[in-house]
Amino acid sequence: MAMSNNFAVIFSVLALVPLCFAASGGGYLYPQYYDHSCPKAQEIVKSVVAKAVAKETRMAASLLRLHFHDCFVKGCDASLLLDSSGSIISEKRANPNRNSARGFEVIDEIKAALEKECPQTVSCADILALAARDSTVLAGGPSWVVPLGRRDSLGASLSGSNNNIPAPNNTLPTIITKFKLQGLDLADLVALSGGHTIGQSRCTSFRQRLYNQTGNGLADSTLEVSFASQLRSRCPRSGGDNNLFPLDLVSPTKFDNYYYKNIMASKGLLNSDQVLFTRNPQTMALVKLYAENSELFMEQFVKSMIKMGNITPLTGVRGEIRKNCRKVNS
């Protein structure tokens, strides 16, 4: 669904509004952070992301997801990007990320280009935030001004990744709690879940809905029957764990509001998607609202992405600017 002219104007105006957010460490995030130290930073990120998405459409969703999975663990500090070394146990080994999180090579390419242009200036955490925005735009979604100035962590948290990131099989109260712990409310939860309008998920992430949702050997009663049958054809009881399925069966590569329309038709792929419509009257109302009004969804998605990007970033003298996003500086 194309944005209306009025909606485009809204985001054009937003792009001109200076955003400044207080952050941990006594510093601030603001869009002009690299205007003097690395003026081509955003252009470089955008160029590499565009090339990666042109090569593989799915990469847009993968890069958006990296930012989400990073911010929910120790804040938006690029801890997710660290490989295991010395005392660091990589978050890539955590259940939500193992054989799932991807796009690290694209981040490496962006970092290499930025190090060549302006050495040890642009943080990996800011690269993740910019890549998420650029990926959304390339998929047909809204643009926004990204507050910048995050620094990179000196460590990772495997337990944080396992415990803090919402899982496909979590109950809605658990998901709500995980968002609340990050300072995110129900509107943020429903809007950010709308990121599932693009991307794919593995059979292993929703198999229980097809065969044994509540331990009674039956499929999830909130899953549309013909859709469930279609899914079972490529997601058997055993095997096929890594078979991929679109999170939005109508427009899987376009950033739009069909995700919400699918949920209302009982065709949400993940349990964590469908429960937004079946388990809570407030989230149900928001699903209906965003299904009916694409502009409102996009507007809230932008607000929630900026809010999520401001989860306890490191600023000032805290952390560092990594030379290589996969390891701390020596």
Results as ranks from 00 to 15, higher is better:
D70L: 05
F301K: 03
N162W: 03
I198Q: 00
A78N: 06
K55M: 13
D273R: 03
D185Y: 07
A52N: 07
V53N: 01
F11Q: 15
I89D: 12
K180Y: 14
L172H: 03
E117A: 02
A23V: 06
C235E: 03
E292T: 12
M59V: 06
W144G: 05
P252N: 11
N257M: 01
P119H: 15
S330T: 14
N164I: 02
T222G: 01
N280E: 02
N242C: 14
Q208H: 10
I306M: 05
V73E: 03
N164A: 07
G103R: 07
Q300M: 01
P173E: 10
E56T: 15
C124L: 05
E117R: 03
A129Q: 02
M284A: 15
S226T: 15
R209Q: 13
G27M: 00
P119M: 07
G239D: 09
I88S: 05
N310I: 11
P252F: 15
G140D: 06
A52W: 15
F297V: 02
T57G: 12
G319F: 08
P246A: 13
T253G: 13
N280H: 11
C71R: 08
L269C: 10
Q182T: 08
G149D: 01
Q200K: 11
H196G: 15
L276S: 03
W144S: 07
A41K: 05
S221D: 15
S4A: 11
K116E: 00
G75H: 08
N329S: 12
C71S: 12
D70V: 10
V106C: 11
Y260A: 11
D220R: 02
V287P: 00
N262K: 01
A78L: 03
P147D: 05
R102G: 12
L223V: 04
D241V: 09
T315L: 09
D241S: 07
V145K: 15
N280L: 11
D83F: 09
G149H: 01
I88N: 01
P142F: 12
L186P: 13
S135I: 00
F301D: 05
V145G: 02
